[in-house]
Simulated scan of single mutants.
Amino acid sequence: MKKVLYALVTGILGAVLLHIVIILGVPHFTGQDAYTRVTEEGAPFVFHALGERPDKTGLASLDPYLKVAVCHFDITRQPLSLVAAGDGVDFWSVAVYDEDGNEVYSMNDRTSVAGDLDMLVASPVQVAQLRKTPIAALAETILVEHRGTVGYVVLRALAAQKSAEPEAKAFLSDAECLPFTGR
């Protein structure tokens, strides 16, 4: 009787574990994970605005009060600089993700310096080099350590009323997602 019960419990636990692995692995094997979709939006180091309806990649800004832009990057050679002036926008937020869709860092205008986006995303080695030789222009820049080399950024701006949409869209279109050149 014990052998039958042991086999039954082992079989059920094995089936549960197998189903979890399959469900979590599907996006990776189908190429429909978030990172792949963002890279299909266009060139790296450019914020691509998302529309209200899903585009060719299936990405969309589904919240009618938020305008959204995405940018994918590769920091193998140099860090990523994210810059945007927060003037005229009621609220904005930014999130950095790795290629597996894990959130590396996020912040919003309430937690930024002076309400503006000024961030560097760098590998641990690049962060150490930046701290070794500090650059005066980076005194108020937020340094984000990213353990991988590729990822994507999601930038959102609130447009709670139709009259706020031009400012939100201007904020996203003026935002920069560029390789860091040393200012």
Rank of each mutant, 00 (worst) to 15 (best):
G42L: 02
T39V: 12
A49Q: 13
V16P: 02
H28L: 12
A15G: 07
T36H: 10
A43G: 07
Q32Y: 10
A43P: 06
L18W: 05
R53L: 12
T36K: 03
T39Q: 06
T30F: 08
V46F: 04
E52K: 15
L50T: 05
A43I: 06
P44F: 11
H28G: 07
L17A: 15
Q32P: 00
I22G: 00
L17V: 15
A15R: 03
F29C: 09
V21F: 06
H28P: 00
T39M: 07
F45V: 02
A43W: 07
F47L: 13
V16C: 12
G31S: 08
E52M: 11
F45W: 14
A15W: 01
E40G: 12
H28T: 14
D33R: 10
Y35N: 13
P44S: 14
T57S: 07
I20M: 00
V38A: 09
P54H: 03
G42I: 08
I20P: 00
T57P: 03
L24H: 05
P54S: 05
R53T: 15
A34G: 01
G51A: 13
V38D: 09
K56Y: 01
L24P: 01
A49N: 09
D33Q: 14
D55R: 11
P27M: 08
A43R: 14
E41V: 09
R53M: 11
E41L: 14
V46T: 15
A49G: 07
L17S: 14
V26E: 02
A34S: 06
D33N: 15
V21Y: 04
A43S: 15
T36R: 14
G42S: 12
D33C: 05
G25D: 02
G42F: 08
P27F: 04
A34L: 12
V38R: 05
A49V: 13
A15Y: 06
F47Q: 13
H28Q: 08
G42P: 10
T57D: 02
H48S: 10
V46Y: 08
A15S: 14
T30E: 07
E52L: 11
Q32W: 04
E52G: 15
H48F: 01
R37D: 03
T36D: 13
G31I: 08
E41A: 12
Y35M: 04
V16Q: 02
F47G: 02
A49Y: 04
T36V: 06
F29Y: 14
G25V: 06
D55K: 09
F47W: 12
P27K: 04
V16N: 05
G51L: 07
R37N: 10
L17D: 02
L50R: 01
E52F: 01
R37P: 06
A34F: 13
R37F: 01
